[in-house]
């Protein structure tokens, strides 16, 4: 029983991590039709920013930890907004080229991170409480899992509130439904593009700092390895659907943990799940019927 609880909560934590990456991917794709390959780099950059900050301030204090989260999120947001303004915007409506530019950016930035921080893992320090465990239904659960789950839940709530209660949110929701109509009404959707990128970057940067605590280290390939699972999550959840991404993140994270523990084949089970979903529902769990580039 305690093993099951431990696996479930750890799986939820992993799912929370996937969601932090996938939420941005899904929003960006939903509004702009861009598959952002550089999203992993936003995450890695946020993680390294947090790592540098905690290294300077001394990593085991709570203020330093919180500050690293804020800094990671901010760095992710700025990097994402700059990417949109400088690279994506120039290729408006040319989806394949936009994907190619983000591919180039991810190649270049990962190489740059390797040049700056080296390709070996940089180990992070955290407040002692994060490394301890809490008893829950007989299972000893590492505390960082709770922080991850809480952060992902806050991000989900934040994005939903933003989409529902602000003017920009309204424009974004309308833009996902029918961008041509929104433009025809005289609203500049392009500003919403930058905002969506910044939101995605914030979530990814925050996810980066949290991921560095989940795995215990930062490496230049941290983002890339999470990104592939985030892609799977967005396809399973349905491209462009935030709720779908949330459901799929949890499903994939939990399934992966259980499969890893009992058979040691978590990654493959996830790909099989993807194949199964595609065969039964090509548009994903909550995706719209038509899937086109």
């Amino acid at each position: 029983m305690s093993t099951v609880v431990l696996l479930a909560v750890t799986g939820l934590g992993l799912g929370a991590l996937y969601f932090l990456v996938a939420s941005g991917l899904s929003l960006i794709y939903g509004l702009m039709g861009v598959l952002n390959f550089a999203h992993g780099s936003f995450l890695t950059l946020g993680a390294f920013a947090g790592f540098e900050l905690t290294r300077r301030l001394g990593g085991d204090s709570w203020p330093a930890f919180v500050a690293s989260l804020v800094l990671g999120a901010a760095v992710g947001a700025v990097a994402a907004a700059l990417t949109e303004l400088l690279l994506i915007r120039r290729l408006y409506e040319r989806h394949i080229e936009q994907v190619l530019v983000t591919v180039g950016l991810s190649l270049a930035t990962v190489a740059l991170f390797e040049g700056i921080w080296g390709s070996d893992p940089s180990y992070v320090t955290a407040p002692a409480w994060l490394g301890e465990t809490t008893q829950l239904l007989g299972a000893r659960i590492p505390n960082d899992r709770f922080v991850l789950i809480g952060a992902a839940a806050l991000v989900l709530l934040g994005i939903v509130a933003f989409l529902r209660f602000t003017r920009f949110g309204l424009i974004i929701r309308a833009g996902v439904e029918n961008r041509a109509m929104v433009t025809a009404l005289g609203i500049d959707v392009r500003r919403a593009f930058t905002v969506v990128f910044a939101i995605g970057g914030t979530a990814a940067g925050l996810g980066g700092v949290l991921a560095s605590h989940y795995f215990g280290y930062v490496s230049p390939h941290l983002g890339g390895s999470l990104l592939i699972f985030a892609f799977i999550v967005t396809v399973i959840g349905g491209l462009g659907s935030l709720a779908g991404a949330a459901i799929a993140s949890v499903a994939v994270g939990v399934l992966q943990q259980f499969a890893n523990f009992y058979w040691g084949v978590g990654d493959l089970v996830v790909v099989l799940l993807l194949a199964g979903v595609l065969l039964l529902r090509p548009a994903g769990i909550l995706g719209k019927k038509k899937v086109q580039a």
Partner: peptide, 20 residues
Amino acid sequence: VSLRVAGISFAMVTLAFAQA
């Protein structure tokens, strides 16, 4: 299996298989 979807989804699915 991959050709059940097109465009960007196809890219992601082929990536997932290659990763597996």
